[in-house]
Nucleic acid binder design. Structure first.
Lengths: 347, 347
DNA sequence: TTGAAAGCGGTACCAT
DNA sequence: ATGGTACCGCTTTCAA
């Protein structure tokens, strides 16, 4: 019994054909008599022939591998993104190498180099909160490696991008606070470097302005590492609580910040939303379970992963250089629950 | 300027050495004069030489890739497991291909074949809830592909395994209910096929027996797909509520089942723990945020991933056949919070 | 329509 | 200690 997988050579020998013919029968299809082709295909199927991917890769200089850089896997948003990516990648026979930056610029650079060395055919990246400079990506991009930036993107590299409607989501959440009667709405967000911070901040500002609420920079708190460590959030909340006019609502810009802030307020016995209301971006699966149930801005994470992967594979397999780039913006959903609605019970 | 990465051949030419010598200098180290070696190493470093992995793979018949089969990525437990796996894999220059079975036997088989075709050097697997038969793994295992089973394991294949102390965790949770005065403790668990179901069930039974509480099979509800769809859990709870003596506590066997049950009970306005107490396995990051805060049995997911990956790489790189296998059992933690403690407020 | 052979970038055996 | 070379499995050019 043959344990080793059979090769093209085995087929050639068995069918008394040349290796070249077998190879062509297996893919080209043109310039091969249909009988020969059928014979080869049949034999291949019967013997469960599978092309050796490493040999193909070596020859074709394509690894059918895509690299992914995100801040962390154990994160509701990114876990769903991965799911979306895998769904298209596995369909098209690509596989995905996942790397985590842990919000560190340095790690992001290392991961990039590592992925380049692994000769990925393209990269899917969501920038770390620390990242300001994208030279490490640029170098690769200029060598012809396709990139898709999603979620936290950069404009310094011309390529397709996939984002959520961050501004719209932030505006909606802030407006919801305003309409619920809150006057002093704070914003806890991530590092000022990232695109999502800027966009969400813009949405927050816009809602305030449109409602003639003065903007107060003191109400905006930045967490340099997106709340990777709880201390950042703790500090932000401390500072908010120390203000002359303590905010009556907090809008948080990410999953970690939302859950983190929630946890801190609760631990300190600050009534939510009685004392301070809370709402923010989050992809947690069951926000209704919290006490009180959590108002969230939910991003279509699966769809983002899917769209990003599709665009990347499109770039990888493009016959001619692509020069016009899309920016896909996916809608978000504001799901209103009790954390952000002050009702009789609390007043 | 050279865009293409340099090869061993380039080094040989530049240094006027043979390809063989360069290759040896780069790894063997023995039988190479230290000057030559140094020259090669220096040149390689200076020119940022990186061995072509596909060529190495083809030649060595090692892909430095490991396959992972889990039920789903967007799952607190598995997301942390992945994190643990990546932490050791990337350190040892392996990469991980993640596949999801979605609790489907059929998909598990497909994923296995797919991973085999991708010529992974070994597999890390947690069985789907549907899986009874492991022939698909056995075939590969007999061809010499190393396996590690973790979390949901099988005894039909002799290899290392990594599990949590499922029985102990289940016993502790059940005992906690008993000591808190609950008499009718139900158990919602996953498919009877999986090892974790059996072990957690055993722990549950043991606690009941040791406390002279009669075992009632009607109090044990199985969700064939581990609660992948909420309906399964809904049915289980319906059946429990329809019993003559409705249980006063429910012990749930997994993250999905715990969160799902919690959600259903809340939606139906069944007071927790006033009417029915709740506790279960869960790796959610902030169980104190729930209303009431959730009592959990937490598994060391990161450590499980880490241990599994380490063992697998050990097997892959073993010089001689390994014949003695370990079963690593990691401790779990019972974290008691309000869902499972009936206090004055609720009575 | 088919075959021979070079080559992708390494590794390792056999010589020297 | 170093060099020549076959080979891993496949693709593709060139020739027949």
């Amino acid at each position: 019994m043959k344990l080793e997988p059979i090769t093209i050579k085995d087929i050639a020998k068995a069918l008394d054909l040349s290796i070249a013919t077998v190879s062509r029968a297996l893919r080209d299809s043109y310039k091969i008599s249909s009988e020969t082709k059928q014979k080869v295909l049949d034999y291949a199927a019967a013997n469960n022939y599978r092309p050796n991917l490493m040999a193909q890769s070596l020859k074709n200089k394509k690894s059918r591998t895509i690299g992914l850089i995100i801040s962390a896997v154990p994160n509701n948003f990114f876990a769903e993104v991965i799911n979306g990516i895998e769904s298209v990648a596995s369909n098209k026979d690509y596989h995905v190498i996942i790397t985590q930056s842990q919000e560190s610029y340095e790690k992001e650079v290392k991961n990039t180099e590592h992925l380049a060395w692994k000769s990925v055919d393209g990269l899917l990246v969501s920038l770390s909160t620390e990242t300001k400079d994208v030279e490490h990506f640029k170098k690769l991009h200029e060598k012809g490696v396709p990139f898709i930036f999603f979620d936290r993107i950069t404009n310094a590299i011309k390529t397709h991008t996939v984002v959520a409607d961050n501004k719209g989501g932030a505006r909606a959440a802030t407006e919801h606070f305003i309409q619920s009667g809150f006057k002093h709405i704070a914003h806890i967000t991530s590092s000022a470097n990232t695109s999502i911070t800027q966009e969400r901040l813009a949405g927050y500002y816009e809602a305030l302005q449109q409602n003639n609420i003065p903007i107060d920079e003191a109400y905006v708190k930045y967490c340099m590492h997106g709340g990777m460590n709880q201390d950042e959030i703790e500090t932000a909340i401390d500072e908010l609580l120390a203000l002359e006019t303590v905010p009556d609502a907090i809008f948080t810009a990410s999953d970690r910040l939302t859950i983190g802030s929630f946890s801190i307020l609760k631990r300190r016995n600050i009534a939510i939303p009685g004392k301070i209301a809370l709402a923010g971006f989050s992809n947690f699966s069951a926000p209704e379970l919290f006490d009180p149930s959590l108002t969230t801005v939910r991003q279509p994470a699966f769809e983002m992963g899917k769209a990003a992967a599709e665009l990347l594979i499109e770039l990888i397999e493009a016959k001619r250089p692509v020069t016009s780039f899309k920016k896909i913006e996916l809608p978000v959903e504001l799901e209103i629950r009790n954390t952000s609605v002050r009702n009789k019970l609390y007043i």
